[in-house]
């Protein structure tokens, strides 16, 4: 465990909590893509099946349970408790265009052709693109609430910090996982346009709105 990995995990946790609190406090999930949140719930479910088969550490187990729990809670708030505020008309990304190719790729390119390993690979590939419905929704409406941009910032920062963690682990531990690294690079690149807008607009006190 190095500082980049730890701050990456904490950044991920911050993103998840920010989103939950935003929805809970405002009693509204306006501007949030339920589709992205369902994809993230699928990501955590398929990746953390090893909770049942392997013990790594108390930290590892606790964080996995927290991530899964918060993820399902978020989906519940969007599709049940605050369903009336869900902006389904703008959440129109076709998720089958992500899930089907990602599913196929996880069968073709994996470390080991076993059910758990294929599901882990699926979760890594799916996570890389799971934010697309949310970014699509923002591009469609042309704006995002500031709190939603904080959520996206921490979510993007998390994978960027993991990239530094992987460089660290390669140099100091000789460890690398090509599947995670390539997917992590793709995932981080998808946030670059958003990072630019976050720094040039939101951090200067302006609302994130896109030109028409």
């Amino acid at each position: 465990m190095n500082i980049f990995r730890l701050t990456g995990d904490l950044s991920h946790l911050a993103a998840i909590i920010i989103l939950l609190l935003k929805i809970w406090k405002s009693r509204s999930c306006a501007g949030i893509s339920g589709k992205s949140q369902i994809l993230f719930a699928m990501v955590f479910t398929t990746r953390y099946l090893d909770l049942l088969t392997a013990y790594i550490s108390l930290y590892n187990t606790s964080m996995k349970i927290i991530y899964i729990g918060c993820s399902y809670a978020t989906v519940y708030l969007i599709y049940a408790k605050f369903k009336a505020t869900y902006d389904g008309n703008h959440d129109t990304f076709r998720v089958e265009f992500l899930v089907v190719p990602v599913g196929g790729l996880s069968f073709l390119v994996n470390h080991d052709f076993s059910p758990l390993e294929i599901l882990w690979t699926f979760s890594i590939y799916l996570e890389a693109v799971a934010i697309l419905p949310q970014l699509f929704m923002i591009s469609k409406t042309g704006e995002a609430e500031t709190i939603t941009t904080h959520y996206l910032f921490f979510l993007g920062l998390y994978r960027a910090l993991y990239l530094i963690n992987w460089v660290w682990r390669f140099y100091f531990e000789g460890f690398f996982d090509m599947i995670a690294i390539v997917a992590g690079v793709v995932q981080t690149i998808l946030y670059c346009d958003f990072f630019y807008l976050y720094v040039t607009k939101v951090l200067k006190g302006k609302k994130l709105s896109l030109p028409a």
């Binding site: 990995r5 995990d9 991920h12 990746r47 090893d50 392997a54 790594i56 590892n60 964080m63 996995k64 991530y67 470390h111 080991d112 076993s114 390993e117 882990w120 993991y162 963690n165 996982d177 090509m178 995670a180």
Partner: peptide, 10 residues
């Protein structure tokens, strides 16, 4: 092929 080690990251 790479060895499928336990995935210790989140």
């Amino acid at each position: 092929a790479e060895e499928a080690a336990a995935h210790d990251e989140l």
